[in-house]
């Protein structure tokens, strides 16, 4: 899967905007949106929020967790624990990137937030690599990875599954005779 595809999925997440125009309820395949009234907050998917924002038709309200203090707490928690801690949103990376790129004026301390999220991300990836290594070293058969997000799985997924594929095949070599020669005749 491409990171762009993960981003596409993330764009379905709902965010709150305050429109500055009025429009009746609109009916889309994904569900009904609106109605839009100037000054009244309304929940819309991220793709629409970004689009409205680019045309300067709304003000964006950042998600509750997108706040320097909360993110600092999350980062410290992530560093403290050995396992993955639950993230505030399954698409935290994608949301941060999109919102900070297109609506950094409506998010206080944007730069700080960017660094904090990046720190958390790095910590989590280092953890992922560490656990992948111990998984391989101990030749475990299965592992449970809680609280990982799609984007994180995406970066090491291909590599890890390929490596485990190879390891599985090398391990089946340890038990010969199973695949009896059928080509002799």
């Amino acid at each position: 899967m491409d990171p762009a595809e993960a981003e596409f999925l993330a764009e379905k997440e709902l965010v709150t905007v305050i429109p500055n125009f009025s429009l009746d309820r609109i009916y889309l395949i994904g569900g009904d949106l609106g109605p839009f009234n100037p000054g009244l907050p309304v929940e819309v998917p991220l793709w629409l929020a970004v689009n409205l924002k680019q045309r300067q038709k709304c003000r964006l309200i950042p998600p509750e967790w997108m706040d320097a203090e909360k993110l600092e707490e999350i980062r410290d928690q992530e560093r403290k624990e050995d396992t993955f801690t639950p993230m505030p949103s399954p698409y935290y990376m994608e949301l941060t990137k999109l919102l900070l790129n297109y609506a950094s004026d409506s998010i206080p301390k944007a730069d700080e937030i960017r660094t904090l999220v990046k720190d958390t991300w790095d910590t989590r990836l280092a953890k992922l690599r560490l656990s992948a290594d111990s998984f391989v070293r101990q030749q475990e058969a299965h592992a449970k990875l809680d609280n990982l997000t799609l984007m994180e799985i995406n970066t090491t997924g291909t590599f890890l599954t390929q490596a485990l594929d190879h390891m599985y095949k090398l391990r089946t070599n340890l038990q010969p005779g199973e695949s009896a020669q059928s080509q002799d005749f």
Binding site: P3, T156, G157, A163
Partner: peptide, 15 residues
């Protein structure tokens, strides 16, 4: 395997 890992990294950085 190395190439697979690099692709993951490059795709992410690109994004």
């Amino acid at each position: 395997l190395f190439r697979a890992g690099q692709k993951g990294l490059n795709d992410f950085q690109c994004w």
